[in-house]
Each structure stands twice: as C-alpha cells, then as structure tokens.
Design a protein around this nucleic acid. Structure first.
Lengths: 159, 159
DNA sequence: GGCAACTATGTTATATTGTAACATAACGAA
DNA sequence: TTCGTTATGTTACAATATAACATAGTTGCC
C-alpha cells in the first residue's frame, strides 16, 4: 500500500484540477449537470484534503454569492454524494471530496486527529475479509462505513 | 465465525439478564455507580437487539418517571459509552447496548436494513488487516468505526 | 420560436440531534 | 455531620438536517 496522497506533500493545484476534470468528464458521460452551486461546493471541498461541515460549506458558498440557506448546500451535497464525488464522514458529520472519482469503491477513511486531513483508501483485502467474515455470520453486506481515526505520518505521535 | 446472536432466535430474557449482570459486576469492579437513570437507559436498550435514537430513549425514560430533558439521556449515554456498555452507530445517530461488555474490543456492527436488528461482531482478522493496511499507508490507527449495512439471514433478500 | 415537462434553485419554516451552564440533590469519606 | 465530589434537574440554545412549496432555468418537441 503506497502512502496516502492526502498525507504527503504534492502539487495540490494539479491534484485539484485533475479531480475536477475527472468529475466533469463523468458528468458528461452520465449526462448529468455540474451546475454552479454543485461545482462550487465540490471546488470548496477540493481546496484541502480535509472534511467540512455542511454549515461551513454553506458559509463559503454564500461568500461566492449563493443563497445562504441550508437546503442549498444539502442539495448540492446530495447530488455530489449520489454521484460518488463527495463522501460523508459519519463520525464527524462532515463532508470530503472523493479523491478518486471513477476508481472509488468501498472507500475507507483515515482521519488524522492532529492535522484533520482525511485520506481515502481502498483496501480491497481488508474489505473482502470484513465482508466475508460478516457473511459467515449470516449477513449480506450491502454497504460499509469504515472510518479510522488516528495519526498520519507527518504528525508527531504525542499530538 | 458463528452466527450473530442478534440475528438468531434465543432466550432473550436470559440474554438481557446476563448482560445486565455482567455490567453490574464490572461497575462493582471499577467502583463506579450504575445509578437508576443509567441502569434504566441500559435496560431499555437491552430490550431488543436494535438501536434507538436519543430522543426515543428519552421518551421511554420519561415514561419511567425520569426528567424529560435531553441532558438526562445524553449524560446517561455518555457514561454508558465511556464504560463500553453502549455503542453509538454513527451512521444512524442511534445507540445500541453492547452485547459482550468485558470481551468487547474493536467491534464491528452488522445492521439489518429489513428488521433493524444490530449484531455486534469482533472480527479480529479483518480488523488487523485494516489497521495494518492503514499502517502501510503511514497511518497509526487509534480508533475505528466499522458499520456494515445489509441483510441478516432471517430477512428475505428482496426486502 | 413557443410550449410543455422536467430539473434545479430560492425561500420559509421546522424537525432532529446534541451541549453549555448553572442550580439542586444525593453520596461518600474524614 | 459536614465538606467535597458526583449525579441530576432545568433552562436555554447550538448544530445538523429536511419538508414543502414557489420560482426560475433547461430541454426536447412541434
């Protein structure tokens, strides 16, 4: 498993642009509309590899001239989540841009308590292990929430 | 992995009593107090292998004569969670009694969409796999939220 | 272009979930 | 028994999320 992108220094402007381009391509393919609010919401989330609360997002959106009412942001988030462009961290009631739209499958989230950065990792082996263990207990898994909290490599272990 | 208790028919009265007895024993050992609200909260959650929202719980508590105010239930839940007697399902903002207080470690939750029952399983192999995969990505896991949604063995797969 | 159907956004209001802060009461050790 | 600690009652409010309906924009069809 290579180091998580979110936790390593990288050309983030490029990273953002690339993700946005992928999303645009997918929207074209699916014949769905990345309208201004939706696009702006995604762009805000793409600014950093951290998660934002809906109301933080809403404030930033209103600074960009959009209507400052909860349904605005929740609708945009609804769309983006439905399409898999954004994920919700259930533990934190916060939203994070998908770092690999298109490839993203059964994502696990690694959430650094010190720097708040969130890495999205697909861990196929672990996921399979989990699902098959559940299956042996007589359970058919349809959906998984996997959120690990801890410390990323860049944060000192006493923080 | 044997079938999850919550999903199989069993002597539930006995199951409840046993869990409560274990909790009482642990409280004695730890020298902490299972006061009436706390005990009642736990008993309500032990009635079924399902999760309840804080306000549902609060209503039941008030039916038992406790003060009908949010802090009452949140404080009881806070205590019970701190001690590991109750867990929160983050995905559902709901609370479920721990089915194996004492043995409980890194629990995963299997949540049936059809019947709402919740099984708590420790899946050591899967958990280790997950933590070590995260570790290879440069991440030190301190805490995990693992919640699988799907169908239990007793519920028809078209439900 | 004009119209109908559909999709998206604006807006008001309210539901749901969770805490802060301080007053009162119960408990437990000296 | 009295003092410090722990727990509960109570008021008020913060944070998160949705319902419902009005308005506007977009698309396809004629």
């Amino acid at each position: 498993m290579k180091k998580a992108l979110a936790f390593t220094s990288h050309d983030h402007k490029r990273c953002r642009r690339a993700t946005l381009a992928t999303v645009e391509k997918i929207c074209a393919e699916r014949n769905i509309r990345l309208t201004p609010v939706r696009r702006n919401t995604l762009e805000i989330l793409l600014e950093t590899h951290t998660a934002l609360g809906a109301y933080e997002l809403l404030e930033k959106l209103s600074q960009s001239g959009f209507c400052d009412k909860p349904p605005v942001v929740y609708r945009a988030l609804g769309f983006l989540m439905e399409q898999g462009f954004v994920h919700k961290l259930e533990r934190h009631n916060a939203f994070v841009a998908c770092s690999e739209p298109k490839k993203c499958k059964n994502p696990c989230f690694l959430i650094c308590r010190a720097c708040s950065r969130v890495a999205e990792q697909t861990m196929p082996a672990a996921h399979t292990e989990l699902v098959s263990a559940a299956n042996q207990a007589g359970f058919i898994t349809q959906n998984s929430v996997i959120e690990l909290s801890g410390l990323c490599a860049q944060c000192p272990s006493d923080s």
